[in-house]
Each structure stands twice: as structure tokens, then as C-alpha cells.
Design a protein around this nucleic acid. Structure first.
Lengths: 246, 246
DNA sequence: AACGAGCGTTGCACATAGTGCAATCACACA
DNA sequence: TGTGTGATTGCACTATGTGCAACGCTCGTT
């Protein structure tokens, strides 16, 4: 592992919280200003950061450009987009698209319930592995050894009264999810939110992504959320078909 | 400057073109596999990349998360969004939002003419400084010394017959733009595209962004594009007001 | 089932590249 | 004009990154 690269990335991450001066950045790493300067010069050279007129560092356009490319590489995101928009329009509820990535589940798209405008706020963030419908869907599709390994690494922090509290119970739930083809989150992550989720499959038959619908209970109770299942499953079926699934 | 960081960023950029094996990445830098491995381990550790089951590297969710933050930090982007959507809907034409950043002009949002769906394809890319309306708008607002310095650094590559070909002519054009409050691109970047652009100002009065409308000449001739000016200026006025301009 | 090719990973010795210090420069403010 | 803050540069030192070679793992072949 490269100390230098790790430091540079930590500085980048720090800039995610807002602009910083060179001294502040050096302070974050606990290194001399010179060291921070050299790291930032490289980042600046590649447009990952830029400096304003006051010598403050900001996240730069190179980052946007790369992130745009990363998004486009997730072909599934582009394929899913029209279907997700339609589902969002038909149900009026929040729709998420998530993917499994190196032991974690990450949101790669979101359609909000109100404005039908894409929100960036949570894209890129991790989904909690033991409390969300998308995570259950994706974990349930993993080969058993990997599934066990990932589950073993989970910190079963209780979010609500309904949160699954241990690996055995989660593994059992994942079996159920795998068998019936969809997952729910019955106030397991937030007390006032229920979700249903289902997998999107490609030509290989593997679940390459998961779609979920999230509904606050003041809008509709859990039972009504389950009634959205046919629409959800039709959506994931259509996306899977576009992605080449048989 | 840090060689190590530069190498790591070059590998990241390389992944922007698609997945790569460790050997391919080592080949890009012309270094030993070991070296590339260490760099990638650091990137992987911070979720900037991840490896799939075939040990191929991909751009990772850490990048998404950071880019999302970067976007949100550009408050102007959020403020402008509804106005740009409205302009896009009213005119049916492609609308760009761009900002000045360290000697360059960068697209930070785009509304496409056809589907009214945000396209990521160009966000993060640089605008050509001597051929685009957004660049003229932003350069025209710079203090004269910096404006001269930036203009002096431009490579005046001719894109079309109408492209401005030298620093003197561009500086003169920028004076005009500054005086009248808007800029055009009369087939200067692409032979078949005309644009108009105008600045967005914040409370300080500085131009913090620029909005442009781009129209292919098969849709409407240059003269009709100029007729969009009132709508454009009303849009930038409204955004500026929301951003705190007097 | 055994074999071998291809690719990723690890241990180690070397020197390159990154680091901290101290001096210098640039700028703002009084 | 002077003072203070913060960025930048030159230099000496060694920690850190590097390449090599050996090892291990997986997959495809006979």
C-alpha cells in the first residue's frame, strides 16, 4: 500500500466537506505544509482539485468527468433509467437503484418521490447491509461462501425494533429472499419507512443490481407497500430483459 | 509534485475508459506489476476503485460519493437547476451551465433538448475558451490582468471559418461581451451550432457561472437564436436573484 | 487427475522519490 | 514603511516506493 496515495486521497475526501487552505490540509494529515503542497500539486495537475483566488483548494472538474464516466460504465444504470422513471411516475414513490461492489452495496441512482428530479444526495453512499431491501436482494444472490463471509463481517447495529440482529437470522432471511425473488424492509432501517426490493439480472442470470421502492408510513402502511410488488417486479423484469436476461 | 500520486491518478483516469487488469494498468505506466498493485490497493482501500470477481479494476463508489459532494458544494448548481429546467422546457433547446475554474471553463450541468433528461456525457469537460459562449461570458468578467493572462495561454485552434483566431480579436470581443451582458457563438465552435450565453452573478457581483442555449441550425437559424435572448436573460436574472445578487 | 500457462501476490534489497526544516517570497493590512 | 500570515523553494536525509524473483492460485487442457 502506498502511503503517499492514501494521504492524497484523504485530502481529497477532506475537501468533500468544503474548501480548505494548505495549512488546514497539512493539519489533517499531521504533516508538514511542504508535503501537503506536493500532494495537492499533483491533484491539481490532474484537475481533481483547483485553487480559487484565495489559494483555497476545492474539488475540481476532473472528478466530475471521471464520475460521469463511472456512471456511464454502469450500463445497467442507463438501461434501467427509463423503467425507473416510469415506476417513479406510476407510484409517485422514491425509487432506488443499487449495486453490489466489493463487499458493499452502493446506491447508483435515485428518483425522488416529489419532484421526479434526480437527486445526487445519496448516490455513491453505502446501503446498510442488514436493514435495507436492496442489500438483502443483492446479498441473497451471492454464492453461499461469499454470502457467509460478507454477513460475518456485518456490524448488526440495531436501527429500529425490527432490525435483524444477528448473522443466523439474516442468513435465514436471505434464503427466503432468494426463494421468493424479492425482499422487504419492514421498518428495519427507519421506524417510519417501509420498502420492497427486487433484483435485476443480466444475461448471466446474476443479480447485477437491485431496485427498491421506499414509502413513509404516513403516506401508506406496510400492507399497501406490498401491493406495489407487481409493479416493482414488472419493472425489474423489463430492465432484466433489456439487460439481456432470458 | 508527487510522482506516486500522479501515477495513481493516471490509473484512475485510465479506468475511466473501462475495466482494466493489473497487468494492463502496469503497462499504461510502464512500471512493474508490483508498483501498480500497491497504487491500486490504496485506491481500493478508499473505495475509489473496486475489483470484480475476475480481479478486474473498476471505478468505485467513493468516486461517486465525492463527486456528489463536489456537485453540492457548487451551490449555484442547485440554485440554477429549476430555472434551467424551465428554460429548457420553454425553449426545447439544449441548456448548459458552466463555471470558471483555475484558468478553465467547465460544464457543471446540462439539459438536453430532446428528452429533458440530464445527460452526464459532458459534465466535467472543459469548454473551449475562444469558441464558446459560456467561456466568453466568464472570461469577460475576469479582472483585466487575469483575463489577459488566460487569453495569452489559449491555443487559437480554428474550429470553423468563424472561429476567433487571435488574442487581440478575442480581447476585443470580450470587451463587447462585458459591455452588453451576453455572448454568442455564431458557428464558431461547430459549423452547424449557434449559441447565446449570459452570466449568473452572486451577491458580490462577480460572474460565478454562465448559462447558454445551443441550437443546431437545422432547427433554427442564427437570427432566431438571438430571439431567445430575452428568455435567457430573464433566466440568468432569476438565478442571480436567487443567488443573492442585488 | 495431473500438468502447465497465465496472472496476481509476497519478501527482500536498493535507491529513488518523498519528507521536514529553515529560509525566502508574496501579499494584505495597519 | 513595517508587520504578520501563509505559500513556495533549496537542500540534506531517510523513509518509502520500486523492481526482481520466487511463490501461489485458478483455470483450461490432455
Amino acid at each position: 500500500m502506498s502511503q503517499t496515495v492514501t494521504r492524497a486521497l484523504r485530502l481529497l475526501t477532506e475537501l468533500g466537506d468544503g474548501e480548505r487552505s494548505l495549512e488546514q490540509l497539512a493539519g489533517v494529515l499531521g504533516v508538514h505544509k511542504t508535503t501537503a503542497l506536493r500532494l495537492m500539486q499533483s491533484l491539481e495537475d490532474e484537475r481533481f482539485v483547483y485553487r480559487d483566488a484565495d489559494y483555497r483548494y476545492h474539488l475540481g472538474a476532473g472528478l466530475f468527468a471521471l464520475a460521469s464516466l463511472a456512471m456511464e460504465q454502469r450500463g445497467i444504470r442507463r438501461i434501467a433509467a427509463p423503467h425507473l422513471a416510469a415506476l417513479n411516475a406510476a407510484t409517485g414513490q422514491t425509487v432506488h437503484l443499487a449495486a453490489y461492489e466489493g463487499g458493499e452495496v452502493v446506491y447508483i441512482d435515485k428518483y425522488d418521490s416529489r419532484h421526479k428530479v434526480r437527486m445526487y444526495s445519496r448516490i455513491g453512499l453505502h446501503a446498510s447491509l442488514h436493514t435495507t431491501a436492496v442489500a438483502k436482494v443483492l446479498l441473497a444472490d451471492l454464492p453461499l461462501p461469499e454470502r457467509r463471509r460478507v454477513v460475518a463481517g456485518i456490524d448488526f447495529a440495531p436501527h429500529t425494533q425490527n432490525t435483524i440482529t444477528g448473522p443466523q437470522r439474516l442468513l435465514a432471511e436471505l434464503e427466503t429472499v432468494a426463494a421468493r425473488g424479492w425482499a422487504d424492509d419492514h421498518a428495519e432501517h427507519e421506524t417510519f419507512i417501509n420498502c420492497v426490493g427486487a433484483p435485476v439480472r443480466d444475461a448471466s442470470g446474476r443479480a447485477v443490481a437491485a431496485v427498491s421502492i421506499s414509502v413513509p408510513d404516513i403516506v401508506a402502511p406496510y400492507e399497501q407497500v406490498l401491493e406495489l410488488l407487481p409493479q416493482l417486479l414488472e419493472t425489474t423484469r423489463a430492465i432484466s430483459a433489456d439487460a439481456g436476461a432470458p
